[in-house]
Amino acid sequence: MRGGPGPGAAELQTLALVRQLADELGGEAHMVALGPPPTAGSVADGAEAGDPSLGSSGADSGHPGAEAKAKLLGGYGADRVFVGESEELALYQPDVAAEVVGRLAAAGEYGAVVFPATALGKDLAPRVGARLGRGVASDVVGCWVEEDGTIAARRPVYAGKAIATLRFREGPAVMTIRANVFAPEAREGKGAISAVDLGGIERRVRTVSFERRGRGSADVSEASIVVSGGRGMQGPEHWGLLEELVDALGEGAALGASRAVVDAGWRPHGEQVGQTGKVVSPNLYFAIGISGAIQHLAGMRTSKVIVAVNRDADAPIFGVADYGVVGDVFEVLPALAEAIRGVRQDG
């Protein structure tokens, strides 16, 4: 995945669930990796949970090549990695990915087909679902095998204002999983490699380019730490303070924003967190000068730990924050960045 904490976080999290289901169902964990021949560049790859679980994952930067990839995934419990390589797969080609994963899923007796809930995974999962005659459970935050062998999953609906429990009537259960929920675990898998056949696939859509936005910080929806600024930051010229904090938190931290700030043109829409922006659930979320409107909470309330800084002790954000500091952002932020830099340097 691009810009996340370490290589392939989305992919390894997908594998974590696939491995768990394969163990519960008594089968193998298979992954799909699609990308260009080994060079640098972006990759689209799918992960598959195997016999009986198949998974599929996200886009990478820098492709290590099939064997390196299989070795890496094998170290996290993959029994088999299906590798498809061609130049066009430097970018996500939806029809190719759907056909490859669809064919594999239809041919093996898979209990589940899992994708990360990234832009790629959310686009791809229903395409595969349609081929298999299955609806998809989107944004899954919990998944288990019932006594009768069917798969059940939990997922937020109504922007996280309710949690639904779903039962798949029969396999394969097709789903996308939310970031930072399923934790990768190092363990030996068989790590076998199979080449996939890319022939005879109709390409209805061609992805021709990727236009990178802004500076190279992590994307808010993939980051493990998010620092969001609201109208309390008083103007775009003060974002340097937030960037300092992101910088202090290190790789894997990204900037987010409230809608008020995006609507005012202070920040790009891609950074907006909430109902009409990105839904994030990082390990750590900072709401800085954000009041905590319900539409903002919809995008971040499932974060593991929430910190709020606001000068209004009655701001609703303190109702969901695990830790709050009542104070002026201009005084608290520099001290916070410095203190965090300090503890990170101490290790």
Binding site: A162, D322, V325
Partner: peptide, 26 residues
Amino acid sequence: TLEIVALQEPPASPPGRIVGEGPGAV
């Protein structure tokens, strides 16, 4: 092909804690 078997309101998150005021709370 899949059914919603239960719908729940999310668990109320335990009330947060105000650590303190101003930079002194950092």
